[in-house]
Design a protein around this nucleic acid. Sequence first.
DNA 1: CAAAAAGACACTAATATGGTATCATTCAAA
DNA 2: TTTGAATGATACCATATTAGTGTCTTTTTG
Lengths: 132, 132
Amino acid sequence: MKLITKRADYAIRALCVMAKNGQRMYSAFELAKKLKIPGPFLRRILQILNKRGVLKSYKGQGGGFILALQPDNIFLIDLIEIFQGPVKLNECLFKAKICPSISTCILRRKVDEIEKFVVSELSSININSLLN
Amino acid sequence: MKLITKRADYAIRALCVMAKNGQRMYSAFELAKKLKIPGPFLRRILQILNKRGVLKSYKGQGGGFILALQPDNIFLIDLIEIFQGPVKLNECLFKAKICPSISTCILRRKVDEIEKFVVSELSSININSLLN
DNA sequence: CAAAAAGACACTAATATGGTATCATTCAAA
DNA sequence: TTTGAATGATACCATATTAGTGTCTTTTTG
């Protein structure tokens, strides 16, 4: 069971590096080298972050990526949802449309509680809090 | 992101049915029909529960499966670990053997906290508590 | 104009999950 | 003693997700 996939993990690490050095611009490959991550893979990840408004990008020589948001405004929950979709722990249970017995309802309620906790924890962590 | 896969979900439901009717024996197909689950699939699930000591099985005509444990001694955490392996939310982070920066250590600690909560919640629920 | 960057997109590989099919074995009942 | 109903074991298939590559286009700077 994975809470954080590689895509999201790499995104978090890259953003941490970028947050440390204020307004500097980074190319995908520079970051990839620093973090020992496959270059083309990280590049795609940064492109997605750009589309989602977390990064700004500049093409051409000397171009690259730079933070579009303050580091304390980039929350883990957002990054995870960008790369993994919404955090829904009870997905499979809900697919069984009709609740076949009271028991699964109790189970569902429990799972919902866990989900709420996970979401609230992930919402409390931002890039800035990972730097201290 | 899935907390409970279909295998574990089906196992839970089947065990709930079996727990309701004390010491009756159920064939895989009888349970499958009652729960509207594909027969051969549930059969494999019950075989696994048998191997893991949650069920006892009897071959031959009139055979089937019966609980090997008291319903309040079968915990969700065990069922999930049987079908999905240990609940390790930080798997992917640990694979990056060496902690590449202090930031991922903080992240790891946070993820560990979440993991502990999930495990303790799942450890507090047993089949019996799903029946009330 | 050349090189260095991102944009876009198609593709492959590995893994996990959900599910099927088949044959062997056991056991009870007719 | 034979038959049928059950599990045991195992191989297989389909689909989805994740991880990662490759290639071509576009933009921008020097």
